[in-house]
Protein backbone atom coordinates (compact mmCIF):
# COMPACT_ATOMS: atom_id res chain seq x y z
CA UNK A 1 0.00 0.00 0.00
CA UNK A 2 1.39 3.40 -0.93
CA UNK A 3 1.39 6.56 1.17
CA UNK A 4 -1.18 7.93 -1.27
CA UNK A 5 -3.46 4.95 -0.45
CA UNK A 6 -3.00 5.60 3.27
CA UNK A 7 -4.10 9.23 2.90
CA UNK A 8 -7.17 8.08 0.96
CA UNK A 9 -8.06 5.22 3.32
CA UNK A 10 -7.89 7.49 6.36
CA UNK A 11 -9.65 10.45 4.69
CA UNK A 12 -6.44 12.15 5.73
CA UNK A 13 -4.64 15.37 4.99
CA UNK A 14 -1.02 15.30 3.91
CA UNK A 15 0.79 18.17 5.65
CA UNK A 16 4.22 17.51 4.18
CA UNK A 17 6.04 14.86 2.15
CA UNK A 18 4.41 14.91 -1.29
CA UNK A 19 7.50 13.29 -2.77
CA UNK A 20 6.81 10.19 -0.64
CA UNK A 21 3.26 9.62 -1.94
CA UNK A 22 4.28 6.65 -4.09
CA UNK A 23 6.45 5.00 -1.44
CA UNK A 24 5.30 1.50 -0.53
CA UNK A 25 4.43 0.78 3.10
CA UNK A 26 4.44 -2.79 4.40
CA UNK A 27 3.87 -2.53 8.15
CA UNK A 28 2.26 -0.25 10.70
CA UNK A 29 2.96 0.64 14.30
CA UNK A 30 0.27 2.30 16.43
CA UNK A 31 1.71 3.69 19.67
CA UNK A 32 1.75 6.69 21.96
CA UNK A 33 4.70 5.40 23.96
CA UNK A 34 7.94 6.00 22.12
CA UNK A 35 9.79 3.11 23.76
CA UNK A 36 7.19 0.83 22.20
CA UNK A 37 8.00 2.36 18.83
CA UNK A 38 11.68 1.65 19.45
CA UNK A 39 10.88 -2.03 19.97
CA UNK A 40 9.51 -2.12 16.42
CA UNK A 41 11.58 -4.18 14.04
CA UNK A 42 10.08 -3.86 10.55
CA UNK A 43 11.15 -1.63 7.66
CA UNK A 44 8.90 0.53 5.42
CA UNK A 45 6.70 1.42 8.35
CA UNK A 46 3.94 3.93 8.99
CA UNK A 47 3.71 5.15 12.58
CA UNK A 48 0.25 6.05 13.87
CA UNK A 49 0.30 8.11 17.04
CA UNK A 50 -1.64 10.61 19.09
CA UNK A 51 1.54 12.01 20.59
CA UNK A 52 1.94 15.58 19.40
CA UNK A 53 5.38 16.62 20.56
CA UNK A 54 8.85 16.79 18.99
CA UNK A 55 9.74 13.36 20.40
CA UNK A 56 7.40 11.60 17.98
CA UNK A 57 9.30 13.12 15.04
CA UNK A 58 12.67 12.45 16.69
CA UNK A 59 11.81 8.84 17.50
CA UNK A 60 10.62 8.25 13.94
CA UNK A 61 13.83 9.81 12.61
CA UNK A 62 15.97 7.54 14.77
CA UNK A 63 13.98 4.49 13.64
CA UNK A 64 14.12 5.49 9.94
CA UNK A 65 10.32 5.79 9.90
CA UNK A 66 9.40 8.17 7.10
CA UNK A 67 5.60 8.25 7.36
CA UNK A 68 3.64 9.44 10.40
CA UNK A 69 -0.12 9.60 10.91
CA UNK A 70 -1.47 11.76 13.73
CA UNK A 71 -4.87 10.48 14.81
CA UNK A 72 -7.98 12.06 16.36
CA UNK A 73 -7.66 15.26 14.33
CA UNK A 74 -4.62 16.51 16.20
CA UNK A 75 -3.29 19.91 15.14
CA UNK A 76 0.46 20.01 14.70
CA UNK A 77 2.53 23.06 15.61
CA UNK A 78 4.50 24.58 12.73
CA UNK A 79 7.87 23.69 14.24
CA UNK A 80 6.97 20.00 14.25
CA UNK A 81 6.00 20.12 10.60
CA UNK A 82 9.24 21.95 9.84
CA UNK A 83 11.28 19.31 11.66
CA UNK A 84 9.50 16.58 9.68
CA UNK A 85 10.30 18.47 6.47
CA UNK A 86 13.97 18.71 7.43
CA UNK A 87 13.99 14.94 7.96
CA UNK A 88 12.20 14.27 4.63
CA UNK A 89 9.16 12.70 6.28
CA UNK A 90 5.51 12.53 5.26
CA UNK A 91 3.00 13.77 7.84
CA UNK A 92 -0.67 12.84 7.60
CA UNK A 93 -3.47 13.84 9.93
CA UNK A 94 -6.77 11.98 10.22
CA UNK A 95 -9.92 12.59 12.19
CA UNK A 96 -10.24 8.89 12.96
CA UNK A 97 -9.31 7.55 16.40
CA UNK A 98 -6.26 5.32 16.81
CA UNK A 99 -8.48 2.22 16.87
CA UNK A 100 -10.40 3.12 13.74
CA UNK A 101 -7.33 4.35 11.85
CA UNK A 102 -5.43 1.11 12.58
CA UNK A 103 -8.51 -0.95 11.70
CA UNK A 104 -9.02 0.81 8.39
CA UNK A 105 -5.38 0.34 7.37
CA UNK A 106 -5.50 -3.33 8.38
CA UNK A 107 -8.68 -3.85 6.39
CA UNK A 108 -7.11 -2.08 3.41
CA UNK A 109 -4.15 -4.46 3.38
CA UNK A 110 -1.41 -3.45 5.84
CA UNK A 111 -1.15 -6.62 7.87
CA UNK A 112 2.44 -6.35 9.05
CA UNK A 113 2.97 -5.77 12.75
CA UNK A 114 6.48 -6.11 14.00
CA UNK A 115 6.70 -5.38 17.70
CA UNK A 116 9.17 -7.74 19.25
CA UNK A 117 7.72 -9.99 21.94
CA UNK A 118 8.06 -8.98 25.57
CA UNK A 119 10.39 -11.47 27.20
Amino acid sequence: MTVRDIVKTLDGVLLTGEDLLDVDIEAACGADLMSDVMAFVKENVVLLTGLVNPQSIRTADLMDIKVLVFVRGKVLPKDMIAEAERNSMAIITTKYSMFLACGKLYEAGIKGGGIREIC
Binding site: D32, L33, M34, S35, A39, N53, Q55, S56
Partner: peptide
Protein backbone atom coordinates in the same frame (compact mmCIF):
# COMPACT_ATOMS: atom_id res chain seq x y z
CA UNK B 1 12.71 -5.38 34.07
CA UNK B 2 10.55 -4.63 31.04
CA UNK B 3 7.55 -2.56 32.02
CA UNK B 4 8.93 -1.23 35.32
CA UNK B 5 9.03 2.55 35.43
CA UNK B 6 9.19 5.32 38.01
CA UNK B 7 8.37 8.04 35.46
CA UNK B 8 5.83 10.70 36.44
CA UNK B 9 2.53 11.33 34.69
CA UNK B 10 4.08 14.38 32.99
CA UNK B 11 6.80 12.19 31.48
CA UNK B 12 4.23 9.61 30.34
CA UNK B 13 2.30 12.37 28.58
CA UNK B 14 5.47 13.02 26.58
CA UNK B 15 5.47 9.44 25.32
CA UNK B 16 8.00 7.96 27.73
CA UNK B 17 7.87 5.88 30.89
CA UNK B 18 6.90 2.57 29.28
CA UNK B 19 9.55 0.85 31.37
CA UNK B 20 11.39 -0.26 28.25
CA UNK B 21 14.38 2.09 28.37
CA UNK B 22 17.13 0.06 30.06
CA UNK B 23 15.97 -3.28 28.55
CA UNK B 24 15.96 -1.67 25.09
Amino acid sequence: QEGYSTASERIREMGFGAGMGLPN
